[in-house]
């Protein structure tokens, strides 16, 4: 449509097309400049840092701080069994929390397909946890978990389990809070997917006297699957780098769950190993890209 206008040769419109170019620049450039300044430039900077032993604690002395180590730092990190231990803990966290969210979220969405008075109120109430601050959700759950005056153990009759600071349980404490917070996310996407299924498919199945299970596996699931995958991708990416819920519940250091993301923060900003932190950050980044790419491949297949 716009191209059509530009082909018009009247002088007034040519002037307008020219000012369009200026307008585009004025409209788009501020955004691009800010993103380059705050995202892209730092991204390359930390890539360079990741090959060095730089520490932000001491002043810059070329050749000493930073001293360039090349690929050595990555090799050292990837050979460190402690890192792999944290990676496994993180993987456990991601699988348990995202798995729980997918099952519960989809289940809730299936139940909420029934239309009734007050359905919207219920949906809104269920969605509330999602829009709270994760660290405050962590704090709330810390209170809820407290073995001496919290409700959690009391309601479930669990005795005096110290969910927040006992390293046997604190990972699961974070998983439960994460599931509580993010199940509504999956539920909302699943509801959007379920709402988009054309009714005539069910009516046709009804004519064929298809069983409930048959309708579910042959109509509902395939139709919602792409949206469930979108939810899965979003949640996996987020869960992989999450640390605020866990930090709200367990704080940091020895009492915190041994997640990669918390370790990353400690390395970069507590122990001030800036170079090592950057390298770890890149390892996490590459892992996230790899995992999401696998999911996106499935998504594209599912969409066909």
């Amino acid at each position: 449509m716009l191209r059509g206008r530009k082909e018009n040769t009247s002088t007034e419109l040519q002037y307008r097309a020219l000012s369009d170019q200026a307008l585009i620049r004025a409209f788009v450039l501020p955004t691009i400049v800010l993103l380059v300044f705050v995202n892209i430039f730092p991204l390359f900077w930390s890539l360079i840092l990741s090959f060095s032993n730089f520490t932000a604690k001491f002043p810059l002395v070329w050749g000493k701080n930073p001293k360039f180590l090349g690929i050595e730092q990555y090799i050292r990190l990837l050979a460190d069994p402690a890192i792999w231990g944290r990676f496994i803990t993180t993987a456990k966290y991601v699988i348990l929390s995202v798995g729980g969210e997918m099952i519960l979220g989809f289940g809730l969405a299936l139940l909420l397909q029934i239309k009734f008075k007050g359905r919207e109120v219920i949906t809104t109430l269920l969605v509330l946890p999602m829009t709270m601050s994760p660290v405050i959700v962590g704090l709330m759950w810390k209170l809820f978990y407290d073995p001496n005056w919290g409700m959690f153990n009391y309601l479930l009759g669990l005795g005096k389990i110290d969910w927040a600071t006992d390293i046997k349980y604190n990972l699961y404490a974070a998983v439960i809070a994460d599931v509580w917070m993010w199940t509504p996310f999956v539920m909302l996407l699943a509801l959007a997917g379920l709402g988009a299924i054309p009714q005539y498919l069910y009516e046709a199945a009804e004519v064929d006297r298809a069983s409930w299970w048959h309708k579910f596996t042959k109509i509902t699931l395939p139709m919602v699957w792409p949206l469930l995958l979108v939810a899965l991708i979003f949640r996996t990416m987020e869960a992989f780098k999450v640390f605020d819920i866990a930090m709200g519940i367990s704080g940091r250091g020895a009492t915190a769950p041994q997640l990669l993301s918390i370790y990353l923060y400690d390395t970069a900003f507590v122990n001030w190993k800036t170079g090592v932190g950057s390298a770890l950050g890149y390892i996490v980044l590459i892992m996230i890209i790899a995992i999401t790419n696998i999911f996106i491949k499935y998504l594209n297949k599912a969409k066909q």
Binding site: L35, I40, F41, P42, L43, S46
Partner: peptide, 16 residues
């Protein structure tokens, strides 16, 4: 830019 783990860009931003 939104999908990046914040911590990767946070280190240089902190220095900057």
């Amino acid at each position: 830019t939104r999908m990046l783990p914040a911590v990767v860009v946070l280190i240089p931003i902190f220095l900057m």
